[in-house]
Design a protein around this nucleic acid. Structure first.
Lengths: 341, 341
DNA sequence: CTGAAAGCGCTTACAG
DNA sequence: CTGAAAGCGCTTACAG
């Protein structure tokens, strides 16, 4: 008669049931190609199966000083951009034999420190830290962090491998495209102070504009945090008499709000005003007019981040900055500027 | 001169540096109100601080047979519904002193089993399992799972505490609302076979309809998985000559696709056709026409799930089924039926 | 091919 | 208020 155990079966229970040592059990459980007699192997497997044995990853990690786990630090996942990123990272990690630990910071700096601390205390082998609005600890170096990490998106921390999309260039291109359509009067919707990606996009926009000698005007609407803010700002602009013919939004979320505002103000898009965003949320292709946007290779960035981290973990030197390019997705919300009829 | 340690400092290093036993260090580190002389406490803290000591959660969990961690099993987070759910769970867990472990299943049954296995092996104290399209292991009981769990959303597993929104009722109400606007000819966009929530919503719709003696017609478009599918189906329906005056979509994603199709087919919404969804994605309030929808209390469900799990973990009996109600959010995409002019 | 034993870093009765 | 010691469940040289 078997004694009733409290809690889950351990490797020892399995060893006992199979009549072998724990070392042997450990080998058949976690070293697939360690030489073990086939008969023994089978007995161990049967015993494990029968006892409903689930190896204790805590003990394993403790013994190996390695958890095959990477932590993902991200402000939130409610934003499709981050959600896609996290899923891509998770998938790629899994394909490299790694599990994932998600740390949500809510875009808060203190919280972020706690989250990193927590991930380290759970002994994640490495970290992937995604850019966030306001929670950068600028200037922190790899040595201070104490665990290998790669950064995704614009972040002011020196010394880490970093993967990002060339936001400056994307902003430049977007503006160039709008310019080619004949637009000369722009509004840029953004949150410059906090989100570095947005900032770079705006810089790119200004870089393009200052390269033109032709007369033009750019108005920057700063401090926008979501559809609502963008909606309000553009609504106000409309009732004040909108002079811009093109609105570039630092993200599709802002663009969505702007689009709603224009529609409500009976300003036709793109006939009256062109609107363009960044990021290409799934939604953006289905709203009407559909949104022209700069598509970021989010999933690819995520996968690259994992690959880089794997390199670092494997002792290989990692590329220091991996740059991707955004792609212009031309849709219905932009058109040649309508000269006043 | 200090000896160079490999890896992070341990409790023993701290003990040595502070000139106390590891037991004492353990107490000041993780038992805030265990009586320890103030001077000792301070010395330990200083030493820990100075060594950059980060407690090893693996060792702690192993020793305590408890990790203060709950696993979240969810098909994906790319869907706003799940993303909001996960964030709500994470926040509520944190407020209860629990950390969270995210397991992504991609809506695949095998993967889901792996994920659960993984979470168990990492010794999550409990699980919150969110409903998913096709990855239910119907009929599994708590005993078979081996770890406390609560289910969120319609799932065919008996014996677990379960929190959900009354989808049947929501479907009933949505239809009742449409009916009250004069609609008698409906299309229901769904994926009946796999997603239980959708199924219940449809059942509710049919329940309402069969309670009416007045003549009406309902066409069910099944097998839809996203905006694209909905778009295609409604586009086809339009070119075949749409007879329905109201489209009820089992989720806002379907509704978004339908709306795009109608717009592209030059069928005015809501003047020609009314469209209504479920879930209330943030997007839905900003598209034009804005989408009438049944709002689900997602965050509240997530919080409740955590509370329930805490009850179970604390040995308290948990409510067996907690039912929430959806709320009708009336917006621009629905209107009184337009009798043919 | 297999096992005994030390060790991973903590916690927690048990003594004092 | 403090410490010595056993134990949590694994892994991994080291022997055989």
């Amino acid at each position: 008669m078997k004694r009733l155990k409290i809690g889950a079966a351990s490797i020892r229970d399995v060893a006992q049931a199979a009549g072998v040592s724990v070392a042997t059990v450990s080998r058949v459980i976690s070293k697939p190609d360690y030489p073990v007699a086939e008969a023994t192997r089978q007995r161990v497997r049967d015993a494990a199966q029968q006892l409903g044995f689930t190896p204790n990853a805590l003990a394993r990690g403790l013994a190996r000083s390695r958890t095959d786990t990477i932590g993902i630090v991200v402000p939130g996942i409610t934003n499709p951009y981050n959600a896609v990123m996290v899923e891509a990272i998770d998938r790629e990690a899994r394909e490299n034999g790694l599990r994932t630990l998600l740390g949500l910071t809510s875009g808060d700096e203190d919280r972020r420190e706690e989250v990193i601390e927590d991930l380290v205390s759970r002994r994640a082998d490495g970290l992937i830290i995604c850019a966030s609005a306001a929670d950068h600890r600028a200037g922190r170096t790899p040595a201070q962090l104490g665990v290998p990490a790669v950064l995704v998106g614009e972040q002011p921390n020196p010394g880490f491998p970093m993967v990002k999309t060339d936001n400056h260039r994307a902003g430049y291109q977007a503006t160039e495209y709008l310019w080619s359509l004949g637009h000369r009067s722009f509004i840029y919707l953004t949150t410059r102070e906090s989100w570095h990606d947005f900032h770079q996009r705006g810089e790119g926009m200004q870089a393009f504009l200052s390269s033109r000698s032709e007369r033009h005007v750019l108005e920057i609407c700063d401090g926008l945090f979501g559809e609502v803010d963008a909606y309000r700002r553009i609504s106000e602009a409309c009732s004040a008499g909108l002079s811009a013919t093109a609105i570039l939004a630092s993200t599709d979320r802002h663009a969505l709000g702007a689009l709603a505002a224009l529609t409500d103000a009976h300003l036709p898009v793109p006939a009256g005003v062109s609107v363009m965003g960044f990021d290409d949320y799934v939604t953006s292709g289905f709203i009407r007019p559909s949104l022209t946007t700069m598509q970021m290779p989010v999933a690819e960035m995520g996968r690259t981040a994992v690959a880089l981290l794997c390199d670092v973990l494997g002792g290989k030197p990692a590329e220091h900055e991996t740059l991707f390019n955004a792609e212009l997705i031309e849709r219905g919300s932009t058109a040649t500027v309508a000269d006043a009829p």
